[in-house]
Write a protein that binds this DNA or RNA. Sequence first.
DNA 1: TTGCATGCAAAGTTTTTGCATGCAG
DNA 2: CTGCATGCAAAAACTTTGCATGCAA
Lengths: 154, 154
Amino acid sequence: MTKQRKIILEELKKHGSHPTADEIYEKVRKRLPRISLGTVYRNLDLLVSEGLIGRLKGDYPQMRFDPRTDDHYHITCLSCGKIEDAPIEPLQDPIRNLENVVGHLTKYGVFGHKLEFVGFCSECLKKQEGSRNETPEAMEQEETQGAPKREVKA
Amino acid sequence: MTKQRKIILEELKKHGSHPTADEIYEKVRKRLPRISLGTVYRNLDLLVSEGLIGRLKGDYPQMRFDPRTDDHYHITCLSCGKIEDAPIEPLQDPIRNLENVVGHLTKYGVFGHKLEFVGFCSECLKKQEGSRNETPEAMEQEETQGAPKREVKA
DNA sequence: TTGCATGCAAAGTTTTTGCATGCAG
DNA sequence: CTGCATGCAAAAACTTTGCATGCAA
């Protein structure tokens, strides 16, 4: 557990949400100005395989890292890509049963599931209302529900 | 609807599973040897925004494209990254209720969910059994359940 | 001391884009 | 004809890696 690894872990735990490697890099850099992105990636990988943090992939190109390692669901904003924890407990019986059904039908060995709610976060809802009759581009994005190509950093 | 777009769509629909852009490119190339990867990406994007196909992100770095556009769930192999359709109907009442709960608690405008089952596909199950006492590396990968860095093409 | 982790830079992988040309409407 | 889509190649975005150096045990 080097100084770098410790601080990377601290900054992720402190972040509260699900930052990208680059976002963590920027935070850590304020405390360790000479740290490199490569070290951040290497340590995040290490922490993931040690089970100290989680790794997420969403509709956006970048990996995101998760301070929590217990089972929980997420909710994703289709407009800005933000991922938050869904404030509910993981489903038990009904979905375990489904896992078995799906396992039998597909011949997969199923051992879990991921549930992700999708929608627009409150900030993006506000932005859309505000621009509803002003910027046609925003409307279009809203209609197609297509995720933007690159992340809009919050 | 150019010749290229038509053939890209055909090859995706015919694929049955959830290919990457590169896999589609290789298929299409057999019929249109001079087509470029850029054109494949551009047309896939277009088809997605027209709602004719779907786009997926899983635990692997590449985008995957989906011939189906109706609501359905997926099952992912953590060993090889393959994504298949889960042969069950989308949940209705119980989960719609959850969507509302999550929406209220998070202030998101929630309009849907994605459910993904995770496990090992039958091929990868077989490979693991076969190598259980032979290649320690395979065991390790199995234990950590960590996805490999790069895709193992099927 | 010894070896693993780091910083740095280069390379790898996937996706996007600028531009001149060509085909579709 | 006219303009949008293509092919090509370069660039961009993100992630991984080789190597010499430095820090920790």
